[in-house]
Design a binder for these strands. Structure first.
Lengths: 223, 223
DNA sequence: GGCAAGAGCTGGTCCAAACAGTTGACCAGT
DNA sequence: ACTGGTCAACTGTTTGGACCAGCTCTTGCC
């Protein structure tokens, strides 16, 4: 119940139907309008508040914020397609572009900082990647796990959390039509080569190849 | 009430006091233990769920997730110091490093994509920056607004939302001790030069200078 | 006209109850 | 001894109503 109300209000704010600064209906009105209990409304409102989509004033009215200035990256995490189709066109391209930016720097830093065990794990994962087969669904999962190793290797928590947001959210759309990624996913040589460059601690070369790999998805999303 | 309970449970999960897979106490028990109403507990639980720190099963027990694999970037947005001091040391360094990564690429893309108006706004902001004075608090605010213009110029929503998360969260810690940043904030020439490179649409040069500027904060956080 | 008391909104908290799904123990059969 | 179903005791979900606390605008007095 509260989930549906949350999604509905969120979309109204994201689309501008409720503009920044506008007051939301009171909790009692929302409960009456949507035929739910006020406690369900409060749960939805709390979540909107945590997304920094609204501002709540005790005694006053709850108002929509300018989400472009306040909301965080977790906004893109949701039912695949909702944001891109309904509210914010182009968010998939943006998420892929950001993944490329983060992933390339993570590859660089991983080459510099990853422990011996972590580098070995990356090499092993690249080798195991060839065993996955050609099922694109499984390849996608393996691909995400592979990048996660690289990002964990660089030891930056912010990169890791961003990756979670991007993978759980918009990028899952891409998994829904994985044929778009088949070329990238099947490029076993590139995976092995990137693992090798990280293992050799050649930061610049690792960054370059990672960027090249990830930018393919961006280009594919554009075309 | 629910905010306090949320923060408490969140810290217990982040510190590992409640490990991944462990069940949380039932809502009724939590309400009794902390002396609050069950609805307050439910609001806190809903927020934890949205942060992807827990998984809720109707009829079953609520369990903690492995937040390193599921949580999003918005986790770093909180009362300044909580995460770094209590739960996750080093998150400020990580956030600054990520800001450098994002900011540099945004500067590059801004040089490529920003409209004429946006480029003019960036140049104007760089000029106006000199008028702010030497109050470090105000300079910090102006600095954030300045980078926001660049990130808006690149037109990537994911970058913008990430910037919001980073600025609202961990980086506000830095503002608490702005003397650390004074050298960077007072570097008017670098600001003007970066604006100029974006205005000239010299993407590579803009990226390089932006990275140089932002990496100073990272280096300062390290030292 | 200016100011203060109050009514009528807003969100914040609480109690109590019924609903719905899961789990596990228990007992009747094979 | 094992299998199968039943039931009671959990879990989260939703509802209703009541009251407190803070803001705002109206009202009415000075």
């Amino acid at each position: 119940m509260s989930d549906q109300l949350f999604a509905r209000l969120r979309d109204q704010i994201l689309t501008g139907e409720i503009a920044a600064g506008d007051p939301l209906p009171s909790e009692r009105d929302l409960a009456a309008d949507y035929g739910v209990n006020r406690h369900a409304v409060r749960e939805a409102v709390k979540r909107l508040q945590q997304c920094r989509l609204i501002e709540v004033f005790h005694g006053g009215r709850t108002r929509a914020l300018d989400w472009r200035r306040t909301a965080g990256l977790d906004l893109v995490v949701d039912v695949p397609g909702t944001l891109d189709a309904v509210s914010v066109p182009g968010v998939v391209h943006d998420a892929l572009e950001m993944r490329a930016c983060i992933g390339a720097d993570a590859a660089r830093l991983s080459a510099l900082r990853a422990s011996e065990d972590q580098r070995a794990a990356i090499v092993a994962a690249a080798a195991a990647y060839a065993e996955v087969g050609e099922d694109l669904e499984e390849l996608s999962v393996a691909d995400v796990a592979w990048w996660r190793l690289i990002i964990e290797g660089c030891g930056n928590l912010a990169y890791l959390l961003s990756f979670n947001s991007l993978v759980d959210g918009a990028i899952t759309m891409e998994q829904a039509s994985p044929e778009l990624r088949s070329a990238e996913l099947l490029d076993l040589d590139a995976h092995r080569e990137l693992a090798d460059r990280i293992a050799r601690q050649d930061a610049a070369a690792a960054e370059q190849l990672a960027r090249e790999l990830l930018n393919r998805s961006v280009a594919r999303a554009d075309g």
